[in-house]
Design a protein around this nucleic acid. Sequence first.
RNA 1: UGACACCUACUAAC
DNA 2: GTTAGTAGGTGTCA
Lengths: 194, 194
Amino acid sequence: MRRTESTTRRVAVYTDGACLDNPGMGGWAWVLPDGPYESGFDSRTTNNRMELMAVIRALEALAGFGNIEVVTDSRYVSSCFEERWWEGWERRGWKTASRKPVKNQDLWRPLVGRVLDGGVTFRWVKGHRGNFWNEFADSQANEAARMQTSNRSKIMDSPGWEERYLASRDAKEKQGTPTDELGGDPFEGSTQLF
Amino acid sequence: MRRTESTTRRVAVYTDGACLDNPGMGGWAWVLPDGPYESGFDSRTTNNRMELMAVIRALEALAGFGNIEVVTDSRYVSSCFEERWWEGWERRGWKTASRKPVKNQDLWRPLVGRVLDGGVTFRWVKGHRGNFWNEFADSQANEAARMQTSNRSKIMDSPGWEERYLASRDAKEKQGTPTDELGGDPFEGSTQLF
RNA sequence: UGACACCUACUAAC
DNA sequence: GTTAGTAGGTGTCA
């Protein structure tokens, strides 16, 4: 089941979760820079579950891409893979280092499985530090939590949108407008296509 | 060192701090209703330090009163005593609940000490909600911050002014003009004596 | 003990 | 609408 790397081009997806009153009303969102995004909510959840949901739903929606970089501001999410927490969990039968059951296993188990299938990497960015797409995902997750509403870009209903997204992204990068870097204004010289 | 309650009559002192650009140019002020007031400034400070300074300088200037009610609109100040934050700080060696050093210890430590000596209580009022003396203190603190100047009522140089303040306040209250209540205009039927 | 996130509250400003 | 100064807390892991 291991996927071939670079059958498709790499995409970076920004994910974030929000939770009012933690535990409380939650929201999650993922977004492709200058591309489609999706958000959802839960009426009673935790911040960490929403961070996980954002990643899980992103990987589902982006199944058409072979190489996905998940950008999150949650160490809870990124460290699981970057520091290989999941190896200890499996070795100990899904117990933490202090021998208590790992929380949120209903979300962690499928996610770990999907990541082991390959084609998924993680990048951590500090939250609220001016990373435009991280903050965009944050605002979408917050709106979803606050309004208890979902959003989904219509473009994802039309087949082949992945190739068109990659093409438009490459065109913009040739113009010298990187869509994936910290600090730069990704709207500069570009149009929101989706 | 615990003071005897009601050796002297109770006074309410309104304190406030202001800060332009936080951190930036700051000012503080305290005021006794229809009585003396004092203000001061700092060229580079924070809003919270100015709120603390207002209380500290008030308690110094009002040492002649045995029972002082400090009226502030800062939860940062009032909650320290009303919710006993200081107990946790001392228990944890002046660390916050998240194990980081308590900020502004140079101001907090002497203030906590003074309050523990007794005769000081706190009352919180919401800022900018029409409490006349809170807003008066606010305007004095703002002027001090903006002009970087100090003010101090001359009456405080004449000995025994405390008793005269209490007498004049009681006379006004007999006229039915409470000087210490929210919403009422304390200038109604009264003259600024100091 | 550390880290990150998610909040809640008040104030101060822009 | 935004940011900063500050505290209290929970969600989670090593």
